[in-house]
Design a protein around this nucleic acid. Structure first.
Lengths: 157, 157
DNA sequence: GGTGACACTTGCAAAGTGCAAGTAAGATTT
DNA sequence: AAATCTTACTTGCACTTTGCAAGTGTCACC
């Protein structure tokens, strides 16, 4: 586990992976403007490190050669469970923009969410897995639940 | 998720949480001598930050007042899934000391491993969840599988 | 062939980190 | 009760990493 933290144990690396995975980012500019406020030199450095670790790949754009398209490797997409758990943890214990329903959804349909993330990766489908935020992610084949109201957290009693 | 990384996004914080959770550490000295090589000032700083974030608590030892016993809070033990996934990811994709069987065990009995971690936390049971390494963790009520031989990783084909 | 977009570099100040040494307070030994 | 030891830190200092602003090189489009 300490080796994992050697690769990912900083403020930015996992955010880059997340943006690739759930927000469908592919280019330097998208990361830069994502609102997280990562400095360009750090971003460049992290992209290189992630590439060196085999977590992402970089390839020149087809239509526009200036563009560099970053993409998760299999090793990278295998980080999905970590990201999901971090998201759930943050939503449960910190102030977050993420609505309860969405989190519940992710906790209850964990395997489906992960499968969907992997599917999109494989299909090169860059539709964001998580929307801006209000609308809940809809898992194909899972019954929709109502969209409002705070819910008791699992382990609060 | 970015809030999660604000709390835990560095080289050491999650290692401290892990040592509390699976190695049964409780004191400053144990962390210091754990072999990971954390500097004492950084350790002190991280313990304070984790405490400020409500992830751990510090209380004076009962028999020896010099001793400070650190303990995970509920918020802290809720990081168990993150740690488990990081461990599994590292074992699958990086060189690790952890034997395949142990990892398989953890992947296949995820919920049981997490339940066991929580149980020990609740019971203040500081027996390490993960042994030194060779012996595999035995989950109560789960059939033992044979202990040797490399196994195919799930997503390698 | 000039302009602008994109993906970076570079320079520099500020913050964070690692190491060695020191300190304070409680326990233990004599 | 004085000396010593343990534990949990803090301090000082060199070094590294980060953040911000500005600059550079390459390509596409007009």
């Amino acid at each position: 586990m300490s080796i994992s933290l050697e690769r990912l144990g900083d403020r930015w690396s996992l955010l880059v992976v997340r943006d690739l995975m759930v927000r469908g980012f592919r280019t330097f500019k998208e990361f830069q403007e994502s609102g997280e406020g990562i400095a360009t030199n750090i971003l460049a450095n992290r992209l290189r490190r992630l590439e060196a670790s085999g977590i992402i790949t970089a390839e020149a754009g087809e239509t526009d050669a200036r563009r560099v398209n970053y993409r998760l490797t299999e090793k990278g997409i295998d980080l999905a469970p970590v990201l999901l758990d971090l998201l759930i943890w943050g939503a449960r214990h910190e102030e977050t923009a993420a609505p309860c329903v969405l989190i519940d959804n992710m906790e209850n349909h964990r395997e489906q969410v992960l499968a969907e993330a992997r599917r999109r990766w494989q299909a090169r489908d860059t539709t964001p897995l998580l929307p801006k935020f209000p609308p809940a992610v809809s898992i194909p084949g899972s019954p929709d639940r109502h969209t409002h109201g705070p819910k008791l957290r699992r382990s609060e009693g």
